[in-house]
Structure formats: structure tokens, C-alpha cells
Design a protein around this nucleic acid. Structure first.
Lengths: 343, 343
DNA sequence: AACAACAATGGGAACGTTCCCAATCTTTTT
DNA sequence: AAAAAGATTGGGAACGTTCCCATTGTTGTT
């Protein structure tokens, strides 16, 4: 048990163990097996007695690297972000790295601040879910040799890999499902796609594919919920005479639209409702909301693997999949008829 | 714009600016105003030219402190944790600190690892949502002078402050509400209270107060959902003849119980359902689930304020509230009769 | 026995920054 | 004018660790 009041240093451990600081450094580094068992024991006991814990600040300064990975998320309260953070942190830890997560609240100013901070802590790799267009900063970071991977959102004018959902495939699958279920009119609802390439991709693909499939496609950009009730009401009314469905671009939209459906008394199913991304409550809402679940574990793993490959100089170690397929989770919200007994 | 490929040092900036390293250090520290405007300009330009960013590892080593706070959460996927992390991170940043969040997945082994890591990074303060009973480690940390505050879960044998919900008050308010709504039998459902003092407090208070209020109190500890359907079914059947309600100890239980109610076809309202902690979907479930919302912002702020007070040596700067009152959010799930048109 | 290779250990310098105290210049006070 | 105070700047040492190369002892080969 540690008995001291202050933080012991490697020098103090060396003195107590009757050896040199180099040997103690070897004991706590990758060269422990170069020490005799006797010396190892003496050092272990001294360190335990003093409650010694290596100072990773000093280690990072001289030679060990920081063993830190940095991650920027645009919105920590988004369940997708939480799931990816969780996966990244686990993958990082499995390889001896710690993760610093910075939340930018979709604010480009905070984003710049956090990037400065992460570089100041000498993070060895970065996973960026961008809020703005910090390409100048990110280019400088990449030029300084820090590997970087973008998460979900591309940044124009930055030659970096993006790992995330296969947006085109997601839209294709959603449309295919809705058409198969008999819907002939689709309202695609999204948060502002400005600066968010994933949103832009989904929107563009929707517009293009709706035309190709011959369904009537409309889009609605969310900015103020109260302002959109008439659009949704009109859509639902129209859909009673000809089947229509609402496709939500992400979890936030799914939540907002579910609220709107309920507030406006729009029956879910007769007017279809489907969301991109799975949320824990989607099965609980009568009659269950159909979703496309994002493979967050795969995404997390791919991001960390990419960084580690870059750090290990093994760029071809394993082929990485950057665009991951969603999983369709069918529930009652994309069916006209459903058992009304579940109330 | 930065033009170099490697990380510039303070020495290089000094050379380019034609001044000393001490002046450059002053420029990037709290003594900038001690430099003449001319010198400040020269340094700013040199730093910009070189893309200089202070190395906080070196700064932490000599004298600046790490400016890091550490936070352990038992389950990052718990919405409560996310909300508190968000609040803590914002409060920390407002005071020039960065937050390292470590998720332990309720695993004591991971917890120990993370604690070692956080101390190795010389964090200046710690916020601990404990998964196990790491009192030995935490005592050593406190003895080394690092301020520490517990979040939500007390640790026996550790003389540290706990900041979180006022558990007794939460149970009192819940029971009062349910009794007022006419329920005379309450089933309290909780995850295992082992090692989780908040859960123990809530359970104990429930047992005690149910007796005091003369309502029939039962408790159910969740371990395997399939195994508990008979209990819930029996309870619901009984409650039809004499009003009963299910009180959920936290958000995870609320989710699980909502699922159970739906799977078993138990009508929400005739059998009441109420949860401790507010979740974004509680209003969406027909007929709306009554909750006690935790004041996560207050909790976050109190935790950071406590640490900062300790760090600034102003232990009496402002009286802190450690136990925060919940906010009752009444919805249809605690009413016998409700409009069945919302389907 | 002499030499080479290997094992084990250690001292000094370096890492990038801050801090301490010294030095010099300028302004104010006596 | 001389002395004191204030403003400005700077060099060296320290922070805790790693790395490099040197030293010593042991073992194996010729």
C-alpha cells in the first residue's frame, strides 16, 4: 500500500531500490526482461512502497509518445456519437491508447479550440466528427505527421479518409423497403445539410433515387418545428388518398417527427415513418418504428484500425472498409395495417 | 498559416523573433502584458509563421499543471451519464480545464486501470462515478493532494463528498405522487444495488416510506427479464382489483419495464408506471410516462465547482449543494383514465 | 590463455517548457 | 545630480522520464 503524501519519482524509487534510474525506467517500460529477477523484485517493492506511478507527461516529453488519441464529436448527446465513442474507446484501450473526447456542440469555434488543445496534448491520432470546415487546421495537423480520420462527415478540400455509414446504400435500402411496403410518396426530413456531408449525401441520393424509382419525393429541412406542421399535415392528408411515408435523415429527426406525428394526431403506418439510425425506444412507440441501424461497432473499429495502421507504418496491414452497410429493422411504422390492440 | 512539417518549439520561436525563450514563454502564459507591444507582435508573428503550439506535456512537467480533470463513468451509454459528462465538460472548459472521460462499463477491473491511467496523466481533479469499491486507490489519490468528488454513488470507507440526486426526496416525491393518484400498491424495480449506493438508498427509502405511508410495497431486483414476467403479470392482475403502480429505480429499468408492459399487454395507467430520471422518449410512449427528472446541469456544476474550490484553496468560496432535488414530470402513465385516442 | 559475444547495469544528455534570480534600461523621487 | 523604484528582458536550472553509449562481468569459442 502506498504510504507517501506526495508523488514519488522514478529517482526516489531508484534510491530506495539501490539501483539506477535507468533500471527503474526499464522496469516500467518495454525492457523489463533485461533486468535480473532479483533486481525486478527490489524495484517492484520499492515502487509499491512509495506508491510510484509513472508520470506520463514526462514520458511523453522525452520519448514514449503520449499514447493519447483525440476524438472530436459534434454532439455528445446524439446516441450515435455515444455508441461510436464507446466503441472507439474500447478499441483504443485494447491497443494501449487512451482517448480524449472533446464535444463541440456543433460549434466551429469550439471545434477550433478543441483542435488546438488536442494537438497541445500531443495526441498521436485524431478521429474527427466535424462541426464546421476546419480544413486548414486539419491540414497542418496531418502535415505534422499525426494520422487523422474523419467520422461520418467529409470535409471538402481535405485529403483524408471518411469512415461511416454507406449513405447511398442506406437511402437505397430505405426507399426499396418503403416502395415494397406500398408507399408511393416519400417525405424526406433532414436537419440542415450545411457543412454536414453525410446529410448532403443522403439528401442528394434521396432526390436522385426517388426520381429513378418513380415515387414522388419531397424534402423538408428542419429548422423550426412549429413552422413545419402544415407541411406534415398536408403530407399526411395526401397520403391517406395515396400512400405516403416520412423518411427521417437521422435520430434527432426521428425523435422530432415522432413527436410531430403524435402532436398532430397522424396515425403511424397509414402514414409511414422510418428513421435512419436505431434508437433504443423505436420498438416501444406504437406500432414500432422501422429503422436502419448504423453499425457503430464496425465504424469504431475501422477508425481505430486506420489510425493504428498509420502509426505502425503498415498502411496495407488490413484492407479497411470505410463505408459500412446499415441493417434494416422492420417494425409496424411502415405497414398500413397493424394490430391496434397494443395500446 | 503554418508552413512547417514538424512541431515547432518555443526555442525556435524565440530565435525567429530575436528574443529569449523566457519572453516567448511569457507571451503564451499569464504574463503577456509584461512584454512591450513591439515584442508581443514579433513573437506573435514568429509563432504564427512556425505554426507554434505550446507542448502541454512539457508545460505540465515543469510548472503549469496538466489542466486536466478526470472523470470516471460507470456506463457511458446511460443518458444520465452523457448529460452529466456534457455538463462537466462545459463547466471545466469554462475554467480552462480539459476533461478526460473514462468509461468503466461497470467493471471494477477497468476502473482500476483507468484510475492508474488518470493519475499517470497528472489530472488535477477527479469526478468518480464508481463501478466497484476502489477506496484504497482513491484514498491514495486523495492523500497525494488531488481533489476528488464522487458522483451519485457513495463509497463506504472513503471520506469524500458525493454529489447527485437527493435519493430520499426522489422516493418521497414519487410515493407521494402515486398515492395522490390513488395507487395503493407499489412495485419498486431496481437493478442490483450491490456496490451502487444510490440504488441502495432508493431501495431502503422505498421500503421504509411505503410502510410509513401504509401502501403495500414490493421490490423486484432485475437480473433476468424473462424470469420476472410472472411477477409483473401477477402484480398487474392484482392492481386491476386494487390500484397498483410500478416505480422504476433508474432509466435502464424504465426502458426494461416499458418493454415488459408492452410485451405482456399490460395497460399503462390502470397499472401505473413511473420512472426516476427523464428520458427523451418518455413523452412519446402512450400515454406518456411520468418521471422524476434529474437536474444534471446542477450536478455537473456542483462537481466542477467543488474541485475548483479545492484547487484554489478556497474551501468556503461558495456553499455547495451536494444533493439535488428532482423535478416531477407528470404524464398519463400515473393516471387510471386517459384518452385512448392517441394511438 | 586470449578474444569475442552477450548480459546486465549505469551516468549524462535530451526532451520543451516554466521559474528564479540577475542584469540592464527607464522613470520617478529625493 | 544621485538614488530608488519600476519596467523589461534574459540565462541557467529544474521538472521526471527516456535514450544513448559506456562500463563491467560472465559465458562461449578459438
Amino acid at each position: 500500500m502506498p504510504v507517501t503524501l506526495s508523488r514519488a519519482t522514478l529517482i526516489e524509487v531508484a534510491k530506495l531500490a539501490g539501483t539506477s534510474k535507468t533500471s527503474v525506467s526499464r522496469f516500467f517500460g518495454p525492457e523489463r526482461e533485461r533486468l535480473t529477477p532479483k533486481l525486478q523484485t527490489r524495484i517492484a517493492e520499492a515502487a509499491d512502497t512509495l506508491g510510484y506511478q509513472p508520470n506520463l507527461m514526462a514520458r511523453g516529453l522525452k520519448g514514449g509518445g503520449s499514447r493519447l488519441l483525440g476524438m472530436l464529436v459534434a454532439d455528445i448527446r446524439n446516441p450515435f456519437s455515444v455508441a461510436v465513442v464507446h466503441g472507439v474507446e474500447q478499441a483504443a484501450r485494447a491497443h494501449g491508447y487512451s482517448l480524449i473526447v472533446c464535444n463541440t456542440d456543433n460549434d466551429p469555434e469550439q471545434e477550433q479550440q478543441h483542435l488546438r488543445l488536442l494537438t497541445a496534448y500531443q495526441v498521436e491520432g485524431l478521429i474527427i466528427n466535424a462541426a464546421g470546415q476546419p480544413e486548414a487546421q486539419l491540414q497542418a495537423i496531418m502535415r505534422s505527421g499525426v494520422p487523422l480520420v474523419l467520422l461520418d462527415r467529409d470535409i471538402r478540400q481535405l485529403d483524408a479518409n471518411v469512415i461511416g455509414l454507406d449513405n447511398a446504400l442506406a437511402i437505397d435500402m430505405a426507399l426499396e423497403h418503403l416502395v415494397q411496403q406500398g408507399y408511393r410518396s416519400i417525405l424526406y426530413v433532414s436537419e440542415s445539410p450545411a457543412y454536414a456531408s453525410a446529410r448532403q449525401e443522403r439528401l442528394q441520393r434521396f432526390t436522385q433515387q426517388a426520381a429513378t424509382l418513380g415515387v414522388k419525393g419531397q424534402t423538408l429541412i428542419l429548422s423550426n418545428l412549429a413552422a413545419h406542421a402544415p407541411t406534415l399535415k398536408a403530407f399526411a392528408k395526401h397520403s391517406v388518398s395515396g400512400p405516403g411515408a416520412v423518411l427521417c435523415a437521422n435520430g434527432n429527426v426521428t425523435l422530432a417527427m415522432t413527436r410531430r406525428f403524435q402532436k398532430l394526431g397522424i396515425a403511424i403506418g397509414p402514414t409511414g415513418l422510418m428513421g435512419i439510425d436505431e434508437l433504443e425506444w423505436c420498438e416501444l412507440i406504437t406500432p414500432g418504428i422501422t429503422t436502419l441501424a448504423q453499425p457503430t461497432d464496425d465504424i469504431s473499429h475501422a477508425a481505430v484500425s486506420y489510425l493504428l495502421n498509420q502509426l505502425n507504418g503498415s498502411a496495407q496491414a488490413s484492407p479497411l472498409s470505410y463505408r459500412h452497410a446499415p441493417r434494416l429493422q422492420v417494425r409496424g411504422s411502415t405497414t398500413f395495417k397493424h394490430d391496434p390492440k397494443h395500446v
